[in-house]
């Protein structure tokens, strides 16, 4: 059986990690390559880099970060942020990323999912979905542009469509839970996991070790992703894994 995965997420801008990083044992805590290598040593199962650079120069820098990271770590990693064409995908995969994440661009042109899957294989294509509960619908809605723009699309419809187009994985962020540290959005994660047969990475809301247990059991997620709680050492990955393993979750 496949082990449940623990995934730290690094927000990178112009080649630097931007979300709070508080590692005392790093020479340069803002260096994404060094931080990635540390997470690898600590037992992270995978990494996600989110490139939030706005400029062309920033994106070129990201490519260099990917190339260096690929040479330094021995776990798979995904790169997302600003990827809007098959050429962008190729550039990042060539640099050494294992998977690429697409979000807004996939909503705007869903054929990008099928084009990428055909060219590089479904295992390389992660569709990132930002979802927020819509009271009027009694359902979750997909948001684009970093959560700023409601798309009018139902999240459960969208993940099913993404799967049928060839997505290999869904990276699901609950905008309602994100930043609360009150736990992952279990109803949303469970609903999405039940709607597709590809793996689902749950993101947003993790604050305690138990939250990961909940999202792997009640939420039926295949992986749990978080950023600041790992960066600030509020949760240590080795302890988290020990905790989960003690409760019978299959962990590497």
């Amino acid at each position: 059986m496949l082990a449940k995965r623990i995934i730290p997420c690094l927000d990178v801008k112009d080649g630097r990690v931007v979300k709070g990083v508080n590692f005392v044992n790093l020479r340069d805590a803002g260096d994404p390559v060094e931080l990635a290598a540390l997470y690898d040593r600590e037992g992270a199962d995978e990494l996600v880099f989110l490139d939030i650079s706005a400029s062309v120069e920033g994106r070129a820098t990201m490519e260099e970060v990917v190339r260096k990271t690929a040479g330094e770590i021995a776990i798979p990693f995904t790169v997302g942020g600003g990827i809007s064409s098959v050429d962008d995908m190729k550039r990042i995969l060539r640099a050494g990323a294992d998977k690429i994440g697409i979000n807004t661009a996939a909503v705007k042109q869903p054929e990008l999912i099928s084009a990428g899957a055909r060219k590089f294989g479904s295992q390389c294509i992660v569709v990132a979905v930002d979802a927020k509960y819509n009271e009027a619908w009694g359902e979750w809605e997909v948001y684009t542009h970093g959560g700023r723009t409601p798309s009018g699309i139902k999240a459960l419809d969208w993940v099913r469509q993404a799967e049928s187009l060839g997505a290999g994985e869904i990276l699901l962020t609950s905008m309602d839970a994100d930043g609360t540290k009150d736990g992952f959005d279990l109803p949303l994660t469970s609903a999405v996991s039940s709607s597709v047969s590809i793996p689902v990475i749950a993101s947003g809301g993790a604050g305690k070790e138990e939250h990961f247990y909940d999202v792997f059991t009640t939420g039926k997620a295949d992986a749990g992703l978080a950023a600041t709680i790992f960066h600030y050492k509020e949760i240590s990955i080795p302890e988290l894994k020990q905790h989960l393993s003690g409760k019978g979750v299959d962990i590497r």
């Binding site: 059986m1 496949l2 082990a3 995965r5 199962d45 479904s122 295992q123 290999g168 047969s197 590809i198 793996p199 295949d222 590497r252």
Partner: peptide, 8 residues
């Protein structure tokens, strides 16, 4: 699920 993808 196919592909067999992940840590085993």
């Amino acid at each position: 699920k196919v592909p067999h993808m992940g840590w085993n």
